[in-house]
Computed example of a mutant assay.
Amino acid sequence: MSNHPAANTPHRLSDPHVLIPVALFALYVIWGSTYLGIRYALESYPPFLLAGVRFLCAGVALYGFLRLRGMAPPTWLQWRNAAFTGLLLLGFGNGLVCFAEERVSSGIAAVAVASMPLFAALFSGMYGEWPNRRESIGLAIGFAGVIVLNLGSSLSGSRLGAMALLVAAMCWAFGSAWSRRREMPPGPMNTAAQMLCASIALLIFGFASGEQLPAHPTMRATLAVVYLAVFGSLIAFSAYLYVLKRARPALATSYAYVNPPVAVLFGVLLAGEHVGPYDLAGMAIILLGVLVITLAKQKRAH
């Protein structure tokens, strides 16, 4: 029989009070940087094949690792649920963002996707889980920040890009709300199954629509694909599914409000994009909205 300190250590390491903030930090920073990563990868790779290759590599690696570790494969029902969720989150959600980033800047793509928590609140409400009053205030503040941020640089240059980003946000939100109430594969196997299923759909659509893999991709584009697969998919997507399962939807989706300022910041530092007064004001309001949502979640937990 183990002594108390040894027995408690794994519990502390797996304590949601520790892991949820760590996972949220990963979502805020890593997913904020992936918008610029996608922009770099698009220099050589077409959008849907880019997403398909990214998720295929990450999914095969993770699935193989888990099976070698002895984890059982998903049941047929879990495969079906993972396929539907993966198609919404990764197929439509990420594939359309890649498509849109051929037409709009990385920072603006992140700004448009920040409408996602509002759709998530709506779809969760359809299942009887409406945001509470404080969460609603936080959502409203966050969306006001998105509007202010968007005043600094318009999406009007590409109606198609703007529409793709809106549909991406809606699909991601519905997939998140739907999957919370379904039997999904356990733990990281859920991540692997969703990526495998989504990658097949993305690759089929990409090739069917006439996309081709580049014969001579640039080193920067290929390194961006590797970064997206390892950090954006394996690490951050696993973190998202963990938070989605253990926290309220408003907190789990709060990353979408933090990603725009992070994406704009990366664009400024690494790609020479410019930041105006609207951008700075919008970022400040967005972060305030996330703070309100976080505090509302903590108060509800007590």
Rank of each mutant, 00 (worst) to 15 (best):
residue 41 A to K: 11
residue 216 H to D: 04
residue 279 D to C: 05
residue 122 L to Y: 10
residue 83 A to I: 13
residue 186 P to S: 01
residue 235 I to L: 12
residue 68 L to Q: 10
residue 77 L to Y: 09
residue 43 E to F: 13
residue 197 C to L: 14
residue 173 A to D: 05
residue 152 G to N: 08
residue 37 G to I: 15
residue 54 R to W: 15
residue 3 N to L: 03
residue 84 F to P: 10
residue 43 E to K: 15
residue 182 R to Y: 09
residue 293 I to Y: 01
residue 279 D to L: 08
residue 155 L to I: 12
residue 258 V to R: 06
residue 30 I to M: 02
residue 119 F to N: 07
residue 242 Y to K: 15
residue 78 Q to L: 15
residue 251 L to D: 07
residue 170 M to V: 05
residue 191 T to R: 04
residue 57 C to F: 15
residue 244 L to G: 14
residue 191 T to A: 01
residue 201 A to Q: 07
residue 32 G to C: 09
residue 2 S to P: 03
residue 74 P to W: 11
residue 100 A to V: 06
residue 50 L to G: 00
residue 74 P to S: 11
residue 244 L to E: 08
residue 234 L to V: 12
residue 145 G to L: 15
residue 197 C to V: 12
residue 269 L to H: 07
residue 213 L to C: 13
residue 258 V to F: 08
residue 25 F to Y: 10
residue 288 L to K: 03
residue 286 I to C: 04
residue 298 Q to W: 01
residue 37 G to P: 11
residue 143 F to Q: 08
residue 193 A to G: 02
residue 107 G to D: 06
residue 288 L to H: 05
residue 205 F to S: 04
residue 82 A to T: 10
residue 195 M to I: 00
residue 117 P to M: 15
residue 168 A to E: 00
residue 252 A to F: 06
residue 213 L to Y: 14
residue 93 G to T: 03
residue 266 F to T: 06
residue 238 S to A: 13
residue 193 A to L: 05
residue 97 V to G: 07
residue 25 F to P: 07
residue 167 V to P: 01
residue 265 L to V: 09
residue 194 Q to D: 02
residue 123 F to W: 08
residue 75 T to N: 09
residue 219 M to W: 09
residue 145 G to D: 15
residue 78 Q to Y: 12
residue 254 S to P: 04
residue 110 A to N: 08
residue 177 A to N: 00
residue 233 S to R: 14
residue 63 Y to W: 13
residue 269 L to E: 02
residue 30 I to Q: 04
residue 240 Y to L: 10
residue 290 V to S: 05
residue 243 V to F: 08
residue 50 L to T: 01
residue 42 L to R: 13
residue 196 L to Y: 04
residue 75 T to S: 13
residue 187 G to Y: 05
residue 157 G to Q: 12
residue 105 S to A: 10
residue 157 G to F: 14
residue 145 G to Q: 14
residue 110 A to V: 12
residue 114 A to E: 03
residue 266 F to D: 04
residue 32 G to Q: 08
residue 84 F to W: 14
residue 124 S to G: 01
residue 157 G to I: 15
residue 192 A to E: 00
residue 110 A to T: 07
residue 87 L to S: 05
residue 51 A to P: 03
residue 276 G to W: 10
residue 96 L to D: 03
residue 221 A to M: 02
residue 119 F to D: 03
residue 198 A to H: 07
residue 244 L to F: 11
residue 217 P to W: 04
residue 133 R to V: 09
residue 56 L to T: 13
residue 137 I to Y: 09
residue 218 T to K: 15
residue 3 N to F: 00
residue 255 Y to H: 11
residue 20 I to D: 03
residue 222 T to I: 02
residue 246 R to V: 13
residue 255 Y to G: 10
residue 40 Y to N: 01
residue 246 R to A: 14
residue 70 G to L: 13
residue 206 G to A: 01
residue 86 G to Q: 14
residue 30 I to L: 03
residue 142 G to T: 09
residue 68 L to R: 13
residue 131 P to L: 10
residue 211 E to D: 06
residue 152 G to H: 07
residue 129 E to Q: 03
residue 73 P to D: 02
residue 5 P to Q: 06
residue 157 G to S: 13
residue 13 L to A: 02
residue 114 A to M: 08
residue 52 G to W: 15
residue 22 V to F: 04
residue 193 A to Y: 04
residue 133 R to A: 08
